[in-house]
Each structure stands twice: as C-alpha cells, then as structure tokens.
C-alpha cells in the first residue's frame, strides 16, 4: 500500500465559497486531498457536498476561493475559471450521484468516449481513416476492453449500457472515469442504491482502483461503514461549512459531527 505522502496534496482548496442568489451553499472551504490517499467528504443532506464537487469539476464557478490541483509532484494548476472538459483533461475525473451513463451506447463505447481526450483523430482522420487513425482506434478499443476486463465487465462489452444491472452501471461509471486517466477520481455517492453485498464489493473496488491505477480518490458518501473502512481521512461538511476533519477514528468520536448528524438535544 502506497499510503499518503504527507505534505504533498494532489488537491488543495482555500476559501472556496459558493453563493447562489442569497444562499451560501459553501462557505470558506479549506480542503486537502493527500496524494495517493482516499479522502471522504461526508455531511447531512444539503450540506453542499455535491456543490463542492461541481465547483471542483467546473460545472459551477465558485464565487471566491482558490482550488489548486497537482497532477504530479511539483506541478500545480489553478482549477477556478476552467471549463469542465479542460479540468477532465488535466486529470480530474468524476462519477455522478444519479448515474449518468451514455445509455444507448454500448458498454465498450462508453469507455471509448472516456478515452476521447487521449485520442487525436479529428474530422479529417475520421473521414480518411488513414493508418494512424485506424491504429489509434484499435489501440483504444483494446485498452478499453482490457479496462473492462480488469473490472469484470468484459462479458457485457457489447451490451447497451442502459440494459446493465444497476450495480454494474455504477461500476461502469467508475471504469469510464478511469478511461480518462485521472490523477484524482471524484466519486459522488458511489454506494447509493447498492445493497449490503454490493457495498462490500464497492469497498474492495475502491481500494483496488487506488492500488492498481495509482491515483487519489475523493469520495462523497452517506454509508458510514464504507467511509470509516475505506478512507484515510474524512472531512465533514454541514450547511456549507467544514466542521471537522481528521482520520476516521477521530471523526467518529467528534461531538460536533455527532451533533450535525443527530441534531441538537
């Protein structure tokens, strides 16, 4: 296990604030994901977790704050003001809370779309289908197939994505995100809708992804047993404010966290 290397964050934010109209959805969020770690972001419903993801991935533009992404040690990029597709190309990939697969494409094609930014063929290449384009197509199809194989989805490579069982759809979304070759993978409630056995599989899958692909993972999750078991550190968001952070064992005992979840007595 590579374990987090302290002091080398793959992502750090400072003062991220998001205001919708008069509503402050995120307030001064300072956040760090250490390289190679699995970091979890938890909090009650409506705490602003998905909003934070949407800021990181460029779907929203935060009202204030800095978000620094470091794809490899010694290189850092400001994410604010970048378009979502640019952020993906830099190495931040994500999944969605409600699965957003390309439903009428096949499983393999879903992954191939994920390879988009690593391919070069343009309009002319597509029309002429020269040797370079053909080689690229073949290499990427092969790469995608192996990725599917690695994650146990190869048998349904030619199935239309919407016909997959729910659990496999969640898994395919992760594989599709991996196809973009991210340095940081954002998982938005990956256990939502899974049963206990599937959640256990997911636990294993998340660790496997980190080991095998050598990347860092930031996950939003409601399932506490999953969070406590899989993550190296946990941040707690409540009403757009970070109220606690630390290793899972500490978070579990933190009175502020308990209060946010159970309400005041």
């Amino acid at each position: 296990m590579s374990g987090p290397a302290p002091g080398d964050p793959v992502l750090s934010t400072s003062g991220v604030t998001m205001i919708f109209g008069g509503l402050t959805a995120l307030s001064d969020v300072n956040f760090r994901v250490e390289r190679g770690s699995i970091t979890a972001l938890i909090g009650p419903n409506g705490a602003g977790k998905t909003t934070f993801f949407n800021c990181l991935t460029g779907i929203y533009r935060p009202s204030r704050g800095i978000m620094t992404f470091s794809p490899e040690p010694g290189r850092s990029i400001q994410l604010r003001k970048l378009a979502p597709d640019r952020i993906t190309r830099l190495g931040v990939a994500r999944t969605f809370q409600n699965i957003r697969l390309f439903n009428n494409l096949t499983v393999l094609e879903n992954v191939l779309v994920g390879c988009h930014s690593r391919m070069k063929a343009g309009l002319l290449g597509a029309l002429l289908r020269d040797r370079g384009t053909r080689d690229e197509e073949r290499a990427m199809a092969e790469f995608s197939y192996r990725l599917l194989e690695r994650y146990g989805l190869a048998a349904s490579a030619n199935h239309v994505a919407k016909n997959l069982p729910y659990g496999a759809q969640r898994r395919l979304e992760i594989v599709r995100a991996l196809a973009t070759r991210p340095a940081l993978l954002l998982l938005d409630e990956p256990a939502a809708g899974l049963n206990i056995a599937e959640t256990r599989e997911l636990d294993e899958l998340i660790r496997f992804v980190r080991e095998r692909e050598g990347l860092s993972i930031l996950l939003i999750e409601h399932d506490m047993s999953l969070v406590m078991s899989v993550s190296d550190s946990v941040y707690v968001l409540d009403y757009g404010v970070l109220i606690a952070s630390g290793p899972p064992a500490e978070i579990r005992r933190d009175p502020k966290v308990v209060k946010a979840y159970l309400g005041e007595d």
């Binding site: 779907i59 597709d85 993906t88 957003r100 390309f102 779309v113 994920g114 599709r176 973009t180």
Partner: peptide
Amino acid sequence: LALREDEVACQAMG
C-alpha cells in the same frame, strides 16, 4: 453521440 445522450457527462469525459 455522448453529447446527445448526456451533455454533462459528455463534458466530464473531457
């Protein structure tokens, strides 16, 4: 095709 299926996910693919 990805654009047709889901614009947000399409952008998330770079």
